[in-house]
Each structure stands twice: as C-alpha cells, then as structure tokens.
C-alpha cells in the first residue's frame, strides 16, 4: 500500500484531466509505485471524473499497468521464440534460484517481481530481459546473476 493522492494530482496537473490523460497518469503511478492499487484507481477516477470501472477496465487491458502487487524491480523475461531458443529457460532458472521465487511471484521484501513477457525487440541479442525500463541482452546465467546482485546492492 502507498499513499497516492498527491501523486495523482501532480500527474493530472501535468497531463490534464481529460480521457486521453488516463494512460500517462496510470503509467506515471506505475513508474513510481510499480503497480496500481484499487485506491489509486479510485483516486484517478475521481480526478478525471470518470467511473472507477472505466479506469480498471483500461488498466487491466495493458500488461505493464499491473493491478497486482509488484516489487520495486519488475524483471520481465522474454519468452518469445528467439529468446526461448537461445536459453531463456536457463535465465529463468537462475533468477528463480537467486530470488527464491517462481515466475509470477514477488519477493517477500517487495524488492523483485519475476514475470514473463512477449518479444521486447532484442531478438538479435537474445536472450533478453527488462528490469523496469532497462533492457539487458545477450544474457548468460553468470551475467544475469551479476546484474541482479547489483540491483540487490541498490
């Protein structure tokens, strides 16, 4: 849970309070808090003067607008064909071992979430993942462990 009132107002001041402001506002909340709580969506609905169902209906369409608890760092592992041919399973295995969670789960300290995603546009450097916005490519189990350990230090 997080307090969202001020952020929603700030984002609405920046992006406006019309229907087309909805996506940038939701994206702004996710950038800061990693996922959308019910309270956040109700707050956005109030700010834009639309129904909360509209907000939820829109958010739930987009995989990056998460409506379930997510950690500070969301690790998205590409599972599309080239990455899958080039060792995606080993990357998942390594991440599961280090983080002690399975795909779809979040660490108890709410630092990391591990999910799979579709092609992220780095097939020539497969396997590839995103950690929040940052792409990491040409991964090996060693490389990905080092990257995650760096994030653990942050």
């Amino acid at each position: 849970m997080y307090q969202v009132g001020n952020l929603v107002r700030e984002l609405s001041d920046k992006h406006g309070r019309v229907r087309e402001s909805l996506m940038p506002i939701l994206q702004g909340i996710v950038q800061k808090h990693n996922y959308l709580t019910d309270e956040a969506m109700v707050e956005v609905a109030r700010e834009l003067d639309i129904s909360a169902a509209e907000v939820y209906g829109t958010a739930s369409f987009y995989t990056f607008l998460e409506t379930n608890v997510k950690g500070k760092y969301v690790i998205r592992v590409c599972k599309t064909i080239t990455c899958s041919m080039k060792g995606k399973s080993d990357i998942i295995q390594t991440l599961e071992d280090i983080l002690k969670i399975r795909v779809g789960e979040t660490t108890t300290d709410r630092q990391f979430s591990l999910v799979e995603t579709n092609c992220i546009g780095w097939c020539h450097k497969a396997p590839a993942i995103l950690i929040n916005e940052m792409p990491y490519t040409e991964l090996t189990p060693e490389k990905v462990s080092a990257i995650i350990k760096d994030y653990m230090q942050k």
């Binding site: 019309v18 229907r19 087309e20 402001s21 909805l22 996506m23 940038p24 939701l26 994206q27 996710v30 209906g57 829109t58 369409f61 987009y62 995989t63 990056f64 607008l65 995603t117 579709n118």
Partner: peptide, 24 residues
Amino acid sequence: KMGSGAYICGEESALFESIEGRRG
C-alpha cells in the same frame, strides 16, 4: 505517447483507442 505492453496496439485503430486513453 507511450504504450504499456500490448501487441494489438500496433494495429492502427487500436493504437488510436490507446492514445485516446481506452482499451486497445
């Protein structure tokens, strides 16, 4: 304008819906 992880939003009319703040 940014997308949020939906392949279908590459289809032109879905893309417009998304820009307008709706489901793609």
